[in-house]
Design a binder for these strands. Sequence first.
DNA 1: GATGAATGAGTGTTCATTCAT
DNA 2: GATGAATGAACACTCATTCAT
Lengths: 217, 217, 217, 217
Amino acid sequence: MSAQPRTARGTRTKAKLLEAAEAVFASVGYHEASIVKITEEAGVGLGTFYLYFDGKQAIFDEVVEDLNRRVRHAMTDAARNAGTRIEAERAGFRAFFRFTAQHPALYRIIRQAEFVSPGALRLHYTRIVDGYIAGLKAAQLTGEVRDMDPTVAAWALMGIGELIGMRWVLWDEEGTDPVPGARPDVPEDVFEEMMQFIERALAPTPDSTPLQEGKAP
Amino acid sequence: MSAQPRTARGTRTKAKLLEAAEAVFASVGYHEASIVKITEEAGVGLGTFYLYFDGKQAIFDEVVEDLNRRVRHAMTDAARNAGTRIEAERAGFRAFFRFTAQHPALYRIIRQAEFVSPGALRLHYTRIVDGYIAGLKAAQLTGEVRDMDPTVAAWALMGIGELIGMRWVLWDEEGTDPVPGARPDVPEDVFEEMMQFIERALAPTPDSTPLQEGKAP
Amino acid sequence: MSAQPRTARGTRTKAKLLEAAEAVFASVGYHEASIVKITEEAGVGLGTFYLYFDGKQAIFDEVVEDLNRRVRHAMTDAARNAGTRIEAERAGFRAFFRFTAQHPALYRIIRQAEFVSPGALRLHYTRIVDGYIAGLKAAQLTGEVRDMDPTVAAWALMGIGELIGMRWVLWDEEGTDPVPGARPDVPEDVFEEMMQFIERALAPTPDSTPLQEGKAP
Amino acid sequence: MSAQPRTARGTRTKAKLLEAAEAVFASVGYHEASIVKITEEAGVGLGTFYLYFDGKQAIFDEVVEDLNRRVRHAMTDAARNAGTRIEAERAGFRAFFRFTAQHPALYRIIRQAEFVSPGALRLHYTRIVDGYIAGLKAAQLTGEVRDMDPTVAAWALMGIGELIGMRWVLWDEEGTDPVPGARPDVPEDVFEEMMQFIERALAPTPDSTPLQEGKAP
DNA sequence: GATGAATGAGTGTTCATTCAT
DNA sequence: GATGAATGAACACTCATTCAT
């Protein structure tokens, strides 16, 4: 995956390019993003780009990879200290929306990938979904989550997060505004409604397994 | 939006162009789709395109509009004959997935719209969501669906359908294959799991009142 | 071989491009010749080039083809009215040198072809050589030329013409000067020496066959 | 021409670069040959190149110079032990073809020189031709070669060798194959036909001058 | 109404060369 | 002496759009 820099200076340069590429992709999209724009944003010469990347698609893949890694980190970090599974889920979604608010690039870039790099797109989704699946399976063992196919549920969760995020994080009043950081999170009441929706979908049937009496009266 | 044809011949020509554009956008994406490709696919001269459309973006908007109208028709048609609200929901999702299988263009084109025509994108989503909202509100009146913010739930449903559809309809085994029609629907067991998920999320609390006054007993 | 124009206007444009390309290739060589230079020389827009040619290499091949056709025409036309075979040979070489003087492009372009379009290079040489071979075979039948392998002799003749032409037509005093038309032909004495060389090489052995008494007393 | 190395290590480095350049020029041509390719082939750093050469053209000139020196050495060495002039000529041509077979680079590089370095091209040809001229003049003194302008004859000989070599040494069956060493020489019968052609072209007229009757005084 | 020749701004990419290390 | 990161001018090529026919 592209040439690795062999000096500290090179490492800095490559990092600058990745950061610039994320910004440019996020603000104007893949096709409008030109190498010139990226290198200007990074403050390096045009030719420098090709020292570290094979082309536009290559840096795009690395940006997707990078964003994916970061959003998953954010989610697992947030969920780490949660007591129950449900709390972990809440924390995960909160982290996801916060990340989205701070990095609108995530959505904007991922959605491009459909045609630009289908493999990267699938990898992105499946990696996040795999995290949900693992969490659901663990919660099923403790009885916090009902017996169900965790894969289908995981994709459902992913979908809920994606569209709620799109609607309440990305779509601010005016329109397309990619300024990062200034974006507000999902409103609290919406978040609560969404969690209600999810919790009921996952909750064990009251009379189902007697193993867990925590959940049901 | 664009010039309207004034003769029957012109009407046919414009229709050919729209159909061709949908096919080309779906198979190669917005940016790879050139006017030449579209007019060749339509079997008309290059210059003819500009008789009916202001440009690439204009025909794209019309294609999105058209797809949106068709998918909503498919969904409401299917739900029309359903007895209960839940049956209507099932029928709607089935129709949605069937449409997706037959017109992969829907997804592929919509996802492009993010940068190409943000307005068209929002319109597409909100129109479908509005349908969900109307259904949910009606079901709340009959007590089939619990008391909740129908808007948040509607976006959640939309998200579930979108990602389940992407995963099980669009991602066939081999990879990105845009041949329309030949695509299989969502597997039955996955569909059932998904509906379970949704039904539980929407179901009224067992002990609550059918009229539902307030949230809790 | 490239798109054919469908209108008279297009035919003119393509011809202008071919002529311009010949001039540019001849003056600066294949690699220094840019599409921009060619289209500027032709007085057409840059994009117009790609209406008629697939790329630089494609127009190069057509130019080589064209030059080859013209030099062969020039040679056969000149040789047509010759009485004896030897006179035909003289006329052919004269025509070749005259063509070279008027179209230095021939040499300069052909020599490039080694790496640019090896197929075109071979075709060029073999076509001319085939002309020599045919002439030699005919002359052998009349006894004007001795019994020998006409193919080897033909390549020898080709080589003689090529280097004599390079030395006395192309290398004028100052250096590389590609101005067409202003170039002097091979000096008469050099031409005579060369023809002496060739005639002796081809002449039948005096005592060999009695069929031809034209050559030796 | 270019900086001379001041240490033994530097001498080795420069030699490695020259050797690498010959190989790269021969296999991909002047324009496709990049400094990076040459330094990689030589196994030295990119910057090292500019320690010894002013640029691509400079190393090209040295490579041409080197090849020219070597082919002339090969020819004169071969001709040294020949008894008669004609034998010397045969030996010279044999050596030339053998060198060509072993170093296809000669042709391939020389032909590039037309535009890259016209001076180098002329120098190359005139040096070889000067060798022919000297030989012819000497042979004229002994009467082995007829009275004629040795310069014209020398260029004719050069041309014959060049095209026969191109046709039977360089053009192997399949196509352009620059692997050195594996190439077969000119076939024996072709060689004999060519020498017949040359010998007759140079042979003294039987009845001409009484000064030389037969081969030796 | 229909056509396609013509255009040129803009793209991704290459590579000879410089220079700080 | 040796290196390779950095540079930017230059290239081949694409395509949305115009307009004369």
